[in-house]
């Protein structure tokens, strides 16, 4: 399968995503420039972390209007797999491809540290290589990671959340919630299940030499899902 990693002005995790896909997974990968509209036949799209367009106005607010996002919206509507990491998640929210919005962390601090997450769903193309309830470790690095939505949406997402912040025992508690996110939500999919956004960085946790390779299973799950679809 061929992967596409989008590069916006201000993206800074694009090279890490390309590295993991090309050198760790061994798959072909293309970088997709934000001004392009051609997805070059990729089978899955990754929106990397960073500060697209300087986070001007709101995180992801301007990136949403870039030409490549119009193509990605159609790609997603046709069932294409789209993974948004950190700022990529924020872009998906602003685009309306995922429900909800991000607010500043309750502590008003940029948080950069490894957190523990609980995998609550394995019936998605992004998590089929995990076991349900598995506790995984990945770093977060964000200032706006407090997930919010209207009460009805929160209620629905609360049942469908994919990743939640938890303690070492896998208990989802407010103490384990680093940013004040609603229902400790760290990652969600859309209702169709082909678009996922998460605040933690799986590309920074894909090799044991970096402290954790738990994130690699997201990329491997996507590959597995696409292989099964063929």
């Amino acid at each position: 399968m061929k992967w596409g990693v989008v590069v916006f002005p201000g993206s800074n995790c694009d090279a890490d995503c390309v590295y993991v896909i090309r050198d760790v997974l061994g798959d072909p990968v293309e970088t997709l420039w934000h001004q392009d509209t051609d997805l070059r036949g990729v089978d899955a799209v990754v929106l990397p972390g960073g500060f697209s367009y300087g986070d001007y106005l709101r995180t992801g607010a301007i990136a949403r209007f870039s030409p490549i996002m119009q193509s990605i919206a159609s790609f997603a509507k046709n069932g294409g797999l789209v993974l948004g990491i950190c700022n990529g998640f924020q872009i998906l929210l602003e685009s309306g491809l995922l429900p909800g919005a991000m607010l500043r962390n309750t502590g008003l601090r940029f948080i950069c540290r490894t957190v523990t997450l609980r995998v609550d769903r394995t019936d998605t193309p992004f998590t089929n290589r995990y076991t349900r309830g598995q506790i995984v470790r990945m770093p977060i690095a964000h200032n706006e990671g407090r997930f919010a939505a209207d009460p009805a949406t929160i209620k629905r997402i609360n049942q469908d959340a994919v990743f939640r912040y938890c303690n070492e025992q896998g208990e989802v508690t407010e103490e384990a919630n680093p940013n004040g996110s609603s229902a400790c939500i760290a990652g969600i999919t859309n209702q169709a299940g082909n678009v996922m956004g998460l605040m933690p960085h799986p590309e920074r946790a894909s090799e044991l030499s970096l402290g954790s390779n738990d994130g690699r299973l997201i990329f491997e799950s996507m590959r597995h899902a696409l292989a099964g679809a063929r």
Binding site: L57, A61, A101, L103, A148, D150
Partner: peptide, 8 residues
Amino acid sequence: QLLTNPII
């Protein structure tokens, strides 16, 4: 459409 996010 742009200046605000009506969700929040």
